[in-house]
């Protein structure tokens, strides 16, 4: 029987202990972030690259998260040029060629611009990056990203920060069945059952941030998310029973008293 240790997440040949990826933005304070990271024990912690400000230059996040695998993102970028430069700056700042590629095409929905996303993926793969693109829940887009060299695809469960969960489970499941690379559900998770659902659908991992950072008790929610991802993965591997519309007794029919 496979143990969880043997069932680790593998992306681009690199093996990770867990299947939860945790964002590091929006926590009440840095200590809560650190406690949440410890509680979740994530495979990777996502970070952003931003202009420095004299006022805000305090203790480096990189230093306080020492020992964790940091995944820089290109959050907020709206052009291929900015996304590629941000990825290069993240590589320089952290010494990693892994990048969560985000290319926003619409400020209301924060939906990815898939045309630019494909071009940026191709360009970054060409520059030696291991690219994990945040994308729409579209199997055609996911296939094209994988063909372009993406190491994983990260379709959204729902728009960023909404907490709506997995709004199109059918399509997420289809992507998981057809994808040649690992599928990480990214964005939309609201609570632990959403993360478990994503894993039950066949996702290789879940990336979330706001659901933990803005929970009433972020540290407890971080632990809940880790447990949910674990449970959802186990349920996926175990194989759920078919859904029935008629009741079926679980106790034996024969030998019933008075029969």
């Amino acid at each position: 029987m496979a143990t969880m240790a043997e069932d680790g997440l593998v992306i681009a040949g690199r093996r990770f202990g867990g299947r939860l990826l945790l964002g590091s933005a929006g926590y009440p304070n840095q200590q809560v972030l650190l406690d949440a990271v410890q509680a979740a024990d994530p495979a990777m912690v996502t970070v952003a690259v931003r202009r420095i400000s004299l006022a805000g230059y305090a203790e480096s996040l990189v230093d306080v998260l020492a020992g964790r695998v940091l995944l820089p993102n290109t959050a907020g970028c709206t052009t291929v040029r900015d996304a590629v430069l941000t990825a290069e700056l993240g590589r320089e700042a952290l010494g990693t060629d892994w990048v969560k590629l985000e290319l926003i095409g619409d400020n209301e929905t924060l939906y990815p611009d898939v045309e630019q996303l494909l071009r940026a993926t191709e360009e970054l793969v060409g520059k030696g990056f291991t690219v994990l693109p945040y994308c729409t829940d579209d199997p055609v887009v996911c296939r094209k990203l994988a063909d372009a060299g993406a190491a994983a695809v990260m379709p959204l469960g729902a728009p960023i920060g909404t907490g709506l969960g997995v709004v199109n489970p059918y399509m997420i499941e289809r992507i998981c069945v057809t994808s040649a690379v690992p599928v990480i559900l990214d964005a939309g998770i609201g609570t632990a059952s959403d993360a478990a659902r994503a894993m039950e659908l066949g996702c290789a991992g879940v990336l979330l941030n706001t659901a933990v950072a803005r929970a009433r008790d972020p540290v407890r929610m971080a632990a809940a998310m880790a447990a949910a991802v674990h449970a959802g993965r186990d349920a996926h591997l175990a194989g759920r029973i078919p859904v029935r519309t008629q009741a079926e007794p679980s106790s034996p029919q024969l030998g019933l008293l008075g029969s």
Partner: peptide, 10 residues
Amino acid sequence: IEILRIVGGG
């Protein structure tokens, strides 16, 4: 010139 640093991100 752009001077950047790593900050919290999702």
